[in-house]
Simulated scan of single mutants.
Amino acid sequence: MTAHYTAVATADGRDGRAVSSDGRIDLAVAVPREMGGSGEGTNPEQLFAAGYAACFSSALTAVARASRQDVKDVAVTAEVGIGGDLENGFGLSVVLRVELPDELQGETGRELVGRAHQVCPYSNATRGNIPVELVIE
């Protein structure tokens, strides 16, 4: 694969900073309170959720446009869970909640969401690696 774009970011752990090479991202990273941390910053799961939601929404727009469907009122919410332990390893799970307008509820919407899941780079990267549940709302 030839990359059309390469993002570069550096982080110094779950309690530190994450900075992109262009400086657009420069933020505190912290372990969530639910995992015993301070919660005084964002965390990798939030960043992954934001990226996956944005990417999936873009993929959905592309496949809808190709089939002449209007998805301008669509919203995608990604819920990224983390679990496990040091002994057995940690893992992620994802629920993608896709809010479709009334006219795209039913088979047409399911088809568009399914096609988006086939072309989205995040979906392709996670397929077979972590559970991803698609929920149409």
Results as ranks from 00 to 15, higher is better:
112 L>A: 08
107 E>P: 13
78 A>C: 00
105 Q>D: 13
57 S>H: 13
54 A>E: 13
87 E>D: 14
12 D>N: 11
129 N>S: 12
21 S>P: 10
90 F>E: 13
59 A>Q: 05
96 L>Y: 06
14 R>A: 09
57 S>L: 11
89 G>Q: 09
49 A>T: 12
91 G>T: 08
29 V>D: 15
118 Q>P: 07
10 T>A: 04
14 R>S: 07
109 G>Y: 02
30 A>M: 10
103 E>T: 12
51 G>Y: 04
105 Q>S: 08
90 F>W: 14
33 R>Q: 15
62 A>G: 14
137 E>W: 05
17 R>P: 06
99 E>I: 07
25 I>G: 10
75 A>C: 14
117 H>V: 06
10 T>R: 07
61 T>V: 10
31 V>Y: 04
54 A>G: 08
79 E>T: 12
45 E>D: 04
27 L>W: 09
63 V>D: 01
91 G>F: 00
25 I>Q: 11
78 A>I: 01
127 R>D: 10
72 K>T: 14
89 G>R: 02
73 D>V: 04
71 V>I: 08
3 A>D: 15
23 G>Y: 02
59 A>W: 07
66 A>G: 02
53 A>T: 01
71 V>L: 06
27 L>H: 12
137 E>G: 06
100 L>H: 03
48 F>P: 00
32 P>E: 13
116 A>V: 07
44 P>F: 01
6 T>E: 15
85 D>R: 15
111 E>P: 09
133 E>H: 01
64 A>L: 00
133 E>W: 06
137 E>H: 12
106 G>Q: 07
28 A>F: 07
107 E>A: 03
9 A>Q: 05
47 L>D: 11
70 D>A: 06
135 V>S: 14
74 V>S: 03
82 I>W: 06
115 R>Y: 03
101 P>K: 00
88 N>S: 06
89 G>V: 01
130 I>V: 10
89 G>K: 03
68 R>K: 11
125 A>E: 03
66 A>M: 13
121 P>Y: 03
50 A>G: 11
23 G>K: 03
117 H>G: 06
129 N>D: 12
2 T>E: 14
29 V>Y: 10
16 G>E: 10
90 F>S: 07
37 G>T: 00
125 A>L: 07
54 A>Y: 12
76 V>P: 15
31 V>W: 09
4 H>M: 11
8 V>S: 11
130 I>C: 06
127 R>E: 05
28 A>V: 14
33 R>K: 13
84 G>P: 04
34 E>Q: 10
39 G>K: 13
134 L>M: 01
76 V>E: 12
62 A>K: 15
53 A>V: 09
12 D>M: 06
112 L>V: 09
16 G>A: 01
101 P>E: 01
56 F>I: 04
67 S>V: 14
50 A>Y: 07
65 R>A: 14
26 D>F: 02
49 A>W: 04
122 Y>G: 00
86 L>Y: 10
116 A>D: 09
6 T>Y: 04
13 G>R: 02
18 A>D: 15
85 D>E: 11
46 Q>C: 01
102 D>T: 08
75 A>T: 11
6 T>N: 12
26 D>M: 04
75 A>L: 08
37 G>C: 04
69 Q>Y: 06
50 A>C: 03
115 R>T: 10
113 V>F: 05
48 F>T: 02
62 A>F: 10
42 T>Y: 05
70 D>G: 03
130 I>M: 11
94 V>C: 12
1 M>S: 14
49 A>G: 02
31 V>R: 13
54 A>V: 06
42 T>K: 03
14 R>N: 07
